[in-house]
Amino acid sequence: MRYEAPDTLEAAVGLLSAADGAARVLAGGTDLLVQLRSGPVEPDLVVDIKRVPGMDAIVEEAGGFRVGAAVPGAALGEHAGLRAAWPGVVEATELIGSTQIQGRATMVGNLCNASPAADSVPAMIAAGATARIEGPGGRRDVPVEEVATGPGRTSLAEGELVASVFLPARPARSGDAYLRLIPRTEMDIAVVGAGVSLTLGENGAVSAARVALGAVAPTALLDRACADAIVGAALDAAALEKLAAAASAACRPIDDKRGTVAYRTRVAGVLARRAAAIAWARAGGRA
């Protein structure tokens, strides 16, 4: 195995493109190092992108925020502007692991690790975030929900890496939230996660919504039926129950060591409902 720490994006892409065997990008390393130790295949090349200038920056752009691929969760949490604009996304990222993990783990790494249970991903999807991909063929921006294609698999082509994630300008009268279910209070992988971002119209009813569910399908789900359940009305008990039912109906989970199909299906509805209530309150909604 070879370790490289290039100081330009071009050099990083060049190294990844030229690699003979398996090559992996190292950002926070909190997933990669575990895989290096116990994974089935040792990569031939690890490209550390933390020495590329700008990778560790959060930059305001078009009223929104561009978060570099090497920004650790702790830095995200310390950014007051981002926290005020997208509290659900920041909280979701901060749920990943311990304080120690927060010192290293990145939102982009969480996205590219392509775990269906990644905490920041449903929140980013709900927020309408886009991933900026750099590669030998140049640059492209894609919705974050198009990055993961299955557990551990992404749509990135050979030589490509995600350099940043862009969180758009926060619309007026809107709010977001993310909740997950874990048996403990910390240190677990989500058994179910639910991210909700919604906007209120002048009349106080929900005018737009995005609802994403984690750990209930091979990738995080952006579910239209969930959004439809709450758009057009005030977020009253009936709307919340419709949302819960839609979320449970959207689930295609598996039984594993962390939860059963029945449990995940039930709790997805509960969490979607609770997250929507928080997002609604953050948007200024009144019952």
């Binding site: 720490a5 390393g29 909190t30 190092l33 575990v34 130790r37 116990s38 311990s98 290293r104």
Partner: peptide, 29 residues
């Protein structure tokens, strides 16, 4: 644990608390 789940290897790296089992030695330059 060597997987970042126990914190027994906690160190400060450039002022941030990390698990040293999840940092490559080569990164420390």
């Amino acid at each position: 644990c060597a997987s970042g789940d126990c914190g027994a290897c906690s160190v400060m790296l450039d002022g941030r608390l990390v698990c040293s089992c999840l940092v490559l030695a080569a990164e420390a330059g």
